[in-house]
Nucleic acid binder design. Structure first.
Lengths: 266, 266
DNA sequence: AAAAAATAATTACATAATGCAACATTAAAG
DNA sequence: CTTTAATGTTGCATTATGTAATTATTTTTT
C-alpha cells in the first residue's frame, strides 16, 4: 500500500468544465476571439465538448458564437478592436513584459491608453488581482475576468482617452495602496523625460508614480524623442520605463541618470 | 504507522478533515476551482470522502459544487449580459418616453441597468447634456457622443451590473446637482414599492432619488409584482415610474397613493 | 454566379466519468 | 469490549464527453 504514494497522476488531469470556461473567457479577453479547434487541442477534449461549452457561455451572454469559434460580446468588442492597429505587436510585447512584473494577488493601477490596455490583456493570466484604473475600456474588460476585483476611479470623462480625469480622479487616487502602477505618456523627450499632453494628465501620473510602491511608464517606440508640452513632475520617482526596443543611447543615459531603469520588452 | 515516516514532504497519509478543508479552500482561492479526483489523489482518500467534504463546505456556503469538483461561491443573480436581450422593444419605448422628459442642457443621472442603457441611447438626440452615471457601458456610450459631458462615479465595480457600487459611488453622488435621474430597480412589489437586490444598491438609488430635482424609476413589465429582498428607502421621493404598459390596477393605486405618478410609454 | 470542395454545426447514440445512497470497514474513545 | 464517527466499497442513476452520420455553412474553384 505504501508504494501507491509514489504513483503520480499520469493522464487523469482532464480539465473541469468551469476551468475550461474560465480559460475560454480569459483567452477571449486577451485575443478577442477563440477557435474551436485550438481550444479542443489545448484542453485535449473533442470539438463537440468545446461547442457545448461555447453554447453554454453564449446563453449566459458571455460571448458571441461565430462559425468556428466565438468572439467577444458585441459592446465590449467596440471598445476592444478600436485603435488597436498601430504598433499592435510592440504593445503586446510591452504588455507581456509588464505582466511579468506582476504577481498573483497584487494591487495594480492601470492608466488610460492603448499600451496600458495591452498590459491589461496580458494580465489575464494572473489571478486574484485588484485592478484600479481610470480607463472605461480597461474597467469593462477586467471586470469580466473571473477572480479580478476592479476599482474605477471616477471623474469627468475625457472623450479622447475614454477615461476619467480631473479632480475627482486625482482625489480618488489617494485612497489606494497600489503595488505596481503602469502609466502611459505622451512622449519620451531627448533629455530623458516622460512628457504629457495635458496638465491634469501630467499631474495625475505624477501622483500615481509617487503613490505606487513601484511605477512604470509604458511607451512604444513611436514615442521616442517626441516632444509634448507638459513635463510630468517628479517623474523620476518611477521605477522604470518599459519600451519595445532600446531608445537612442543619449535618451537612455539621460533617463537612467535620473533613476528609472529601462526595460526592453522582447 | 509506517507511512508517516515515508512521506515527510506532503501531508500525512490520513489528513484530518479540517486540514483537508483548509487546503481545499486554499486551492479554491488560488485557482478558482478544485477537482474531486485531484483532491482524492492528493490526500490519498477516496472520492467519496472528498465529496462529503465538498458537500459540507457547500452547505456552509464556502463554495459551489459543480460536476467533478467545486468552484468559488458566487451568489447567483441573472448576469447583466443575460438580461440585455430580453424585452428589447419595451425598453426602447421606455427609453423614448424618458428622453421626452429631458431638455437640452440638463444634468442627467443614469443608473446602471439595461433599461437605463436604453434611456441613454434615446438621449442621443439631446444636445449639451451632462451625463452622470455609475455604469461603465453608459459612460463609454455617451462619451462618444458629441456635445455630451460625462461624469463617471467611481467605486468598486460590480461584475454583474458592470457598474460602480459601494462607498465611493455613494459619496460621489453628493457632489452633483442633477436635474433628472433615471433609476433602475429589481422589482415593483404588489403594494406599490420599488425594490432592489442589494442593500448598497437600494441605498444608492434612495440617495439619488432624494438628490435629483426629479427622479424616475424605469421598469419594464417583467418587473411587475416581482419581489426582491430590499426596499428602497423613501422611494416615494421619486417623481414617477416609467413603464412599458400599465401595471395591475392594485399596484397603480398603491403607487400613486404614495406619490409617484405612473407614466406608460407607447 | 454557380458548382464543388472544405469546414463546421447538428443530431443521435455510445461510452466514460461522476454522483448518490446504502452498507461494510476501520479507527478512535469510553 | 462496545460504541461512535469517519472513511471505504459497491451498485446503480445521472451527467459529461466522445463518435459518427447527416445537414448547414463557408470557401474555393470554375
Amino acid at each position: 500500500m505504501i508504494a501507491d504514494i509514489a504513483m503520480s497522476d499520469s493522464q487523469n488531469a482532464r480539465a473541469l468544465a468551469p476551468r475550461r470556461h474560465a480559460e475560454i473567457l480569459r483567452r477571449l479577453a486577451a485575443d478577442g476571439t477563440v477557435g474551436i479547434t485550438e481550444l479542443a487541442d489545448f484542453f485535449d477534449v473533442s470539438r463537440q465538448t468545446i461547442r457545448r461549452d461555447l453554447k453554454l457561455l453564449a446563453e449566459r451572454g458571455q460571448l458571441d458564437l461565430v462559425h468556428g469559434g466565438a468572439t467577444l460580446f458585441e459592446p465590449i468588442e467596440a471598445a476592444f478592436t478600436e485603435r488597436r492597429e498601430e504598433n499592435a505587436g510592440a504593445k503586446a510585447a510591452i504588455g507581456r513584459a509588464a505582466a511579468g512584473l506582476v504577481r498573483d494577488g497584487m494591487v495594480v493601477f492601470l492608466d488610460s491608453g492603448t499600451t496600458t490596455l495591452a498590459v491589461a490583456q496580458a494580465l489575464s493570466e494572473r489571478k486574484n488581482l485588484t485592478i484600479c484604473t481610470t480607463s472605461l475600456s480597461i474597467a469593462l474588460l477586467m471586470c469580466r475576468q473571473p477572480q479580478v476585483r476592479v476599482h474605477m476611479l471616477g471623474g469627468e470623462i475625457d472623450p479622447d482617452e475614454e477615461a476619467a480625469v480631473g479632480i475627482d480622479a486625482l482625489e480618488a487616487i489617494r485612497h489606494f495602496r497600489v503595488d505596481v502602477a503602469f502609466l502611459g505618456g505622451g512622449g519620451l523627450s531627448p533629455d530623458g523625460e516622460v512628457t504629457d499632453f495635458t496638465r491634469s494628465g501630467a499631474e495625475q501620473r505624477s501622483r500615481m508614480a509617487g503613490t505606487a510602491a513601484k511605477a512604470y511608464f509604458v511607451l512604444d517606440s513611436s514615442k521616442f524623442g517626441r516632444l509634448t508640452p507638459l513635463r510630468i513632475p517628479r517623474f523620476e520617482q518611477a521605477a522604470g520605463v518599459i519600451v519595445d526596443r532600446r531608445p537612442p543611447e543619449a535618451i537612455c543615459e539621460a533617463l537612467e541618470r535620473r533613476g528609472p531603469v529601462v526595460i526592453v520588452a522582447t
